[in-house]
């Protein structure tokens, strides 16, 4: 057994990546539509997790209202598409832009807040957005019923209407996002986020415009969540305010924290844990469905007690957390 393990470890890493890539590409051909749908759901939440990771992971800003940006993206697409017939692939960049503008509008006045205070304000704006959609003061969001009849995306006459089409579309977005995030991490801006997170005053004294750097984290994170919103709206063709609830902001928050703050593979593992695991539990605990969320909640508690840095943390973040624990215990 140990021998086998060692032999597996000896295999060149690239073969593992190749096998993983092949597995992901071929996955929909060997499974049911149900699991393909779960995979698409995973993909959309992975995008949301990765976008929140910019704000929460890279810049270290406590954001518990991320569903608001997701909602702005989804509703922008839904309104433009159902009212004006604008195709999904055109509304996609517009949604990203509107979410980004929305982020500038609401986060600019609160950027100087720290930690828990910022967190409370973000919970507040998340709720305001949900209530706005629910009460529909402008008569465009459809109130409690939301908006239905959103088009499927289509390109050159090809309509993405089957789960398998959506699987590959979402996959393409996730792959591009991972690629872009890796490059952002290793850039001037990525380093600036680390500096701000580590010591804001020192960063400011080193000539970094900390307000601008934090605002950029919100802008990029919101734009990406807006893209996820467009994908979501066109996948389900119906959106309603309850999807963009505080609970979903919490799920995104947990994806990043449990997976490993600031770490791309961590966010993907976190998404598996938060989105796919409950689906698996649904099968296993069929007899006792009401136990599902109990098991899930207990798992989260154990996780935070025994592995607070998450499943797959970024090395810098692990150091930061250890250091914080040391000072706390002194």
């Amino acid at each position: 057994m140990k021998d086998l393990f060692l032999r597996l470890k000896g295999i060149d890493q690239r073969w593992w990546y190749l096998a993983l890539a092949l597995g992901i590409i071929l996955f929909p051909w060997f499974t049911s539509n149900y699991w393909i749908s779960v995979a698409v759901f995973f993909g959309i939440y992975a995008l949301l997790g990765l976008s929140l990771n910019i704000i929460l992971g890279y810049a270290g800003l406590f954001q518990l209202g991320h569903a608001a940006f997701w909602a702005v993206g989804a509703y922008t697409t839904a309104i433009l598409n159902t009212r004006y017939g604008i195709p999904i692939f055109v509304t996609l960049p517009i949604s990203a832009l509107v979410s980004a503008l929305f982020a500038i509008l609401i986060t600019k006045p609160i950027l100087h807040l720290r930690g828990d205070y910022l967190c409370l304000v973000t919970i507040g704006f998340g709720e305001i957005v949900r209530l706005f959609l629910f009460n529909d003061p402008l008569g465009i969001t459809g109130g409690i019923n939301g908006i239905r009849g959103i088009d499927r995306p289509s390109i050159f006459g090809f309509v993405f209407h089957q789960p398998i089409h959506y699987y590959y579309l979402t996959l393409a977005f996730v792959v591009f996002t991972i690629f872009a995030m890796r490059r952002l991490e290793n850039s001037r801006l990525g380093r600036a986020w680390i500096y701000v997170r580590e010591d804001e005053l020192a960063a400011e004294a080193m000539g970094i415009d900390t307000t601008q750097v934090k605002l950029l984290a919100f802008i990029i994170g919101a734009a990406w969540a807006g893209v996820a919103g467009t994908l979501y709206a066109s996948r389900y063709t119906v959106i309603a305010p309850e999807t963009f609830s505080f609970w979903n902001s919490c799920v995104m928050f947990c994806i990043v924290i449990i997976g490993g703050v600031g770490s791309i593979p961590g966010v993907l593992v976190g998404t598996l844990g938060m989105v796919v695991l409950p689906e698996l539990l649904r099968d296993v605990l069929e007899e006792v469905v009401q136990w599902r969320m109990l098991v899930f909640g207990a798992a989260m508690m154990l996780m935070m007690i025994f592995r607070p840095e998450g499943f797959w943390p970024s090395p810098i973040r692990r150091h930061e957390l250890r250091a914080a624990e040391l000072t706390a215990s002194e």
């Binding site: 850039s187 001037r188 801006l189 600036a192 500096y195 020192a202 960063a203 004294a205 000539g207 930061e320």
Partner: peptide, 27 residues
């Protein structure tokens, strides 16, 4: 007040931030 959890080199690179310009798309 160093950035404690990153390398010495990455710390010093912080100083160059205000002398450089690359943004999101560049990255």
């Amino acid at each position: 007040r160093l950035f404690a959890n990153i390398t010495a080199l990455e710390n010093v690179m912080a100083g160059q931030h205000c002398r450089t310009r690359a943004g999101v798309l560049g990255a």
